[in-house]
Simulated scan of single mutants.
Amino acid sequence: MASSLTFDSLTEVFNGRRLAEIFRSHRTAILSTLGVAVALPVAINDYRTYISYGPGGLPYNVGGWLAAHLLRVFSREQLSTVPYDNKQLLLADEPGFLPSDFPPKRSSSRPRIGPHPVPQRQLEQLPSDEVRQKLIRRFAELGERAQQMGLVDVKRSLYERQHVALFVAATREWHGVARETRGEISHVHAGLDGSIHVVLHPADCKKVIERGWGQRHAFSGAAVLRKLFGFSLPVNYVLVYAPRDEAEVDVTLSIVTASIQFMTGTRAALE
């Protein structure tokens, strides 16, 4: 008897007409509850993705995640090479610093990149710890050689804050792109994924993107950021995907070398 009453009561509650009355009486509360029920799992998953990147330029907490989420509104397309056909770009009338047949086409599809523009990180195709450490060591050695040549200064990245970066030496003349990045040339994301940010000659940007080795930063060329936040990234600012083996480390370091040459205005050999 009790079961029957319970069933009858539930049937009454879920009666279409009754549901309509309840919805009309509590529309705001019901919609708010449904919104939270749908949005909360999505937000939790998005936050977990942000944390999976490891520490970067933004705070490594909920506040940093909220900022990264809000900054998505400024994200731009990252794979077209059309921007590098602009003859007004610095040194566009001169050849790039990478050989014409280099880099070779990358051997696999592009890795999936996280949805947040900051920090820009890979979610897959990550290197082993051994390969990542080898990249970090060789990046540091390249920086030391360039520093000994008077080309660069080595200090903490202005963008990432967690990682060491190469900067145009204070004693050298800075061109317009160097001034826009405040001298920063390149840094390795040493914490987890081993990808690299570099600033390249327009022709070299085109090669790196077309041959599958990287893509632009989501903020590259977004002049609106300077108006709103007082900084911007040149269209030359490119993410190079993390190398997965010794051969890819060689390719990656050659791209970093081209970045140093472009930013410091030299074609002298560094390796």
Rank of each mutant, 00 (worst) to 15 (best):
V177D: 02
V251H: 02
P99D: 03
D46H: 12
V42D: 04
E271N: 14
P117D: 04
G150Y: 13
G63N: 12
F219T: 05
V198G: 01
D245C: 13
H217V: 05
F139D: 00
V152C: 05
H197T: 06
H201V: 08
V118E: 03
I30L: 11
H197E: 07
S232T: 15
Y84S: 02
S9C: 04
Q88P: 00
T181H: 09
E246L: 14
Y237M: 01
K105F: 09
N61M: 01
A269Q: 10
V118H: 00
S107T: 15
L70H: 06
H187C: 02
A247M: 06
G143V: 11
D193Y: 13
Y241E: 04
R211H: 14
V42R: 06
V118I: 11
V13D: 00
Q78L: 11
Y50F: 15
Q133F: 07
E160G: 08
S109Q: 12
L135H: 04
V42S: 04
I136D: 10
V238G: 00
A223K: 14
R48H: 14
A165F: 07
S128Y: 09
L70D: 05
I44E: 08
D153Q: 05
P119I: 03
V82S: 06
R156C: 05
A190P: 01
L126W: 10
R172W: 07
R179Q: 15
I209Y: 09
A165Q: 06
E12N: 08
E246D: 15
A146M: 02
E246S: 15
Q122G: 08
H217Y: 12
S232H: 12
L158Q: 08
